[in-house]
């Protein structure tokens, strides 16, 4: 495999999105995500984190502002071409039930006009799935296996940017832990820029290099995991950090 380039930097410039008369889902967000970073977007339901993520691959079109990949506006050029250059994983996985595992993984290559079965199998190795699964249908897989296939499909075209929307939300804790580890490893090996939406602060703290906390459409905290654990980042962020910290303390007390 040729050397992989580092993923792009992502810039939000005064991005806003409003649905009807409701309060804005995303309200005037401006920030830059450095190339190669692993950013977690954390917040409660309805905080606007998913909406903000989807403005990057244009599944959501902002009403105001623009989103940049390096120095290119994502709105320039056709949306399908943009999305083919970005890996996207979401909670419902969205594997195509009428295609085998291998066909699902290879589909983005087919769309790009370069079908490559060998590459699809190599992707299964990458997400630590045995080759015997290649000919299975998605319905025959476990939830964790399905999500791994989803990650393989997202990365098959060698994108520099990986977007994940609650990728581990529907998984049991053990599966979740092992898959999170795999994603972090892939992020490092492939030198990706990764943005992950999650409502689980513990997951964000353990995986990400930078944690953005959203509330009511705004970014209310922007800090490293270490800073958050040191009590920085403001009240909203600290309230979220308090939950896993409290749980850890109680577990330790039980053991002691």
């Amino acid at each position: 495999m040729p050397a992989l380039s580092t993923g792009p930097a992502v810039g939000f410039e005064q991005v806003g999105k409003r649905y009807g008369d409701a309060p804005p889902a995303v309200d005037d967000v401006s920030l830059t995500i450095a190339a190669g970073s692993f950013v977690a977007l954390v917040g409660t339901s309805g905080s606007g984190k998913s909406t903000l993520l989807k403005t990057i691959n244009r599944l959501v079109i902002p009403d105001a502002g623009r989103v940049m990949l390096d120095d290119k506006d994502v709105a320039a050029g056709p949306a399908p071409a943009l999305r083919r250059s970005i890996g996207y994983v979401f909670q419902d996985v969205g594997l195509f039930p009428h295609l085998t595992v291998a066909e699902n993984v290879a589909l983005p290559l087919k769309l790009a006009g370069a079908p490559d079965h060998t590459r699809a199998l190599a992707m299964l190795d990458l997400v630590e799935l045995p080759h015997v699964l290649a000919t299975r249908m998605p319905a025959e897989l476990s939830g964790g296996q399905r999500q791994r296939v989803g990650v393989a499909r997202a990365l098959v075209t060698r994108p520099g940017l990986l977007l994940m929307d609650e990728p581990f939300g529907a998984l049991d804790p053990v599966t979740r832990e092992s898959l999170a580890g795999a994603v972090r490893r892939l992020h490092d090996e492939l030198r990706l820029t990764t943005i992950m939406v999650t409502h689980d602060m513990a997951e964000a703290l353990l995986l990400a290099t930078r944690v953005l906390v959203m509330a009511a459409g705004r970014v209310v905290s922007d800090a490293t995991p270490a800073a958050l654990l040191a009590g920085e980042g403001g009240d909203v962020a600290q309230a979220l950090v308090a939950v896993p910290r409290d749980q850890a303390r109680r577990l330790a007390a039980l053991a002691g």
Binding site: N57, P80, R83, Y88, F90, G94, L95, F96, L107, P108
Partner: peptide, 27 residues
């Protein structure tokens, strides 16, 4: 059809025609 399937199709960069041909019609 499950909306997740349509979102996945859009997410991996299918055009509307490709979504119809490769995903919706077979399903």
């Amino acid at each position: 059809l499950d909306p997740a399937v349509r979102e996945a199709a859009a997410g991996i960069g299918m055009t509307r025609a490709q979504t119809l041909r490769l995903v919706e019609l077979p399903l």
